[in-house]
Design a protein around this nucleic acid. Structure first.
Lengths: 206, 206
DNA sequence: TCGTCAAGAACGAACATTCTTTTTTTGCCG
DNA sequence: CGGCAAAAAAAGAATGTTCGTTCTTGACGA
């Protein structure tokens, strides 16, 4: 091999990639994936067309990367969350989870929730994004299932409850929270958890 | 007024409009709003560019109409549902609701759920769609609130439960169901209701 | 016969991507 | 240790296509 290779450092490449990804996320949060133009991403990233296409071979690939990042960011918060030492009741677990989701959005200072919504829509048309979403959801479900098992053992749930069913139901409250939050930003985790608590509180003996 | 009007019948106009709307929905279910081209809608509707633009002044207006139809179709099923004579427990109400949502999809033989997902994403960028979604969600919430009040009165829920909180939480399970259904079409209403039932069943006395 | 409805060709803007040129980086040799 | 060559990286103009919308023409009902 007579290869001489004046390449740039691996960290530099990673940082550039991230720079583009972040710019694309900001654009997607504003305009959605398909109304975002490559020009907009290029402008927002402060780079050039040539540079962007050096890191992502097409717009669709960039969209996939953005979708993956957004969905992954939301999913990422949950794995860590459902495994504390002391197992809390479901309403508290839900409160913690929704709170984390909001925190992630604030941390990255990109409106991740909005981008996640775009990713759901994209999953309906791009099999690659669907697969990606499928995987992340499987992870979230697994985390909730672990939680459910622990909660049953801790006596927070009926002993004969099916952990998988409980997990699916708890998990499914998150998209609703995110959507409601889009429509009414004043929606907050406390109210949400309170609703679940009210649903779970047994009817008073008549 | 010197208006002479050789117009076509009002029903004809309505039918034409619906023809275009349905075509657009089918396209949107396949490719999303912004990847759907006007040519595709025109082809699918069997009409011409001139005709389509006679009924919708722009693509964005067509998108709004489609979004409104899809979201409205989902919302429409719920109003009727939460008011039966005999008030059922929450898990049964949820079962009935999710079942209805699936039925609507099958009835119109358009994948309404997919279009609804697109509408959520569009709400993040078009204030008109956001407003529309806001209104429909308010309606759904009101229906659930009515149900919650009745359920409390019927002894299915704790007497001190906040109907509004309960309504918000129940309502928020629907988007989750719809999203999960996209990712895994085998997801069914029974499983869903079972999860809620398990969550509500009190822990056995130790 | 007038005015709406519809068709479909035509148009111009917008856009994703490529190509050309310039700049930067790195390994090597003097 | 410092310039040199080679190749990657980046810039930005150029391109060819796609797409939303309009315009022209004809058909049809009142």
């Amino acid at each position: 091999m007579i290869l001489r290779m004046p390449k740039v450092s691996e960290e530099h490449r990673a940082r550039r990639r991230d720079q583009i990804l972040t710019a694309a996320m900001r654009c997607a949060a504003r305009e959605g994936f398909h109304k975002t133009t490559m020009s907009a991403v290029i402008r927002e990233s402060g780079l050039s067309a040539g540079a962007v296409y050096l890191y992502f071979s097409s717009k669709q690939e960039l969209i996939r990367a953005v979708a993956g990042t957004a969905v992954g960011a939301v999913a990422g918060t949950l794995g860590a969350l459902t495994e504390p030492e002391n197992v809390v009741p479901p309403e508290q677990a839900l409160l913690a989870t929704t709170s984390r989701i909001l925190e992630v959005g604030r941390a990255h200072d990109v409106e991740i929730i909005r981008v996640a919504l775009q990713a759901w829509a994209e999953a309906a048309r791009d099999p690659a994004v669907l697969a990606l979403l499928h995987e992340e959801i499987a992870g979230i479900r697994a985390a909730w299932t672990d939680y459910a098992v622990a909660a049953i053992a801790a006596g927070h749930l009926a002993a004969d409850a099916d952990p998988v069913a409980v997990a699916r139901t708890l998990m499914s409250m998150l998209p609703g929270f995110m959507l409601l939050r889009l429509v009414d930003p004043s929606t907050d985790p406390e109210q949400y958890a309170a609703g679940l608590a009210a649903l779970r509180r047994p009817a008073s003996p008549r």
